[in-house]
Simulated assay, not measured.
Amino acid sequence: MRKVGHKIRTAGMVLALSALAAGCSSIRDHRGYLIDHTLLDSVQPGIDNRLSVEKTLGRPTFVSQFGTKDYYYVSQVVKTPPFGRPRTADETILRVRFDDAGNVTAVDKRGMEQVARISPNGDKTPTLGRHRSLLEDLFGNIGAVGAGGVGGGPATPTGPGPNGS
């Protein structure tokens, strides 16, 4: 009887530890366009046009706003560690370029090598101008703007209507 209770307790501890370990793994999430390399390889420069690209690859993530109307397909894999911020683990950007007639001229593929990592400059953004104290910020505009009714003007409405209009 004692061996059975010990086995049940051991099995319970193993299950609890495995549940804890599963909770500590990061979450992997895919965002954006799902790349199918077979469909991507079927898009041929000089043969396909805008309509055939949309039928093959689907609607683009976005279309360029300036210059030629290139199609962009964006795909991201984001990992979120426990108690951490999401980080982009992999990113692929497909650009389908068109000529003026709407025919495909090239298909470009870019990845994480084009992603720029920036580091903000501390907690404050440096600005030009005067450094003011808290009291100057709170009371700095007193007397700077004229109050209504003060300054020598008539205090009664001047027009023929009931409110001076």
Results as ranks from 00 to 15, higher is better:
residue 7 K to C: 08
residue 7 K to N: 09
residue 10 T to M: 12
residue 12 G to I: 05
residue 15 L to F: 08
residue 15 L to G: 04
residue 16 A to C: 08
residue 18 S to G: 01
residue 18 S to Q: 03
residue 23 G to Q: 02
residue 42 S to N: 10
residue 46 G to I: 09
residue 47 I to K: 15
residue 47 I to L: 15
residue 48 D to G: 03
residue 52 S to T: 15
residue 53 V to I: 09
residue 54 E to D: 07
residue 55 K to Y: 10
residue 60 P to G: 05
residue 60 P to Y: 06
residue 61 T to R: 01
residue 64 S to K: 09
residue 66 F to V: 11
residue 68 T to W: 08
residue 70 D to R: 11
residue 70 D to K: 11
residue 72 Y to D: 03
residue 75 S to L: 07
residue 81 P to R: 14
residue 81 P to M: 03
residue 86 P to M: 02
residue 89 A to F: 11
residue 90 D to Q: 14
residue 91 E to I: 14
residue 93 I to G: 00
residue 98 F to L: 05
residue 99 D to L: 07
residue 106 A to E: 15
residue 109 K to D: 02
residue 120 P to R: 13
residue 122 G to P: 06
residue 123 D to I: 10
residue 124 K to P: 00
residue 126 P to V: 11
residue 126 P to I: 03
residue 129 G to A: 06
residue 129 G to M: 04
residue 130 R to Q: 14
residue 132 R to T: 09
residue 136 E to W: 04
residue 141 N to M: 07
residue 143 G to D: 01
residue 143 G to Y: 01
residue 145 V to P: 00
residue 148 G to L: 06
residue 150 V to F: 05
residue 150 V to P: 00
residue 156 T to H: 10
residue 157 P to L: 02
residue 160 P to N: 08
residue 160 P to A: 06
residue 163 N to M: 07
residue 164 G to Q: 02
residue 165 S to R: 13
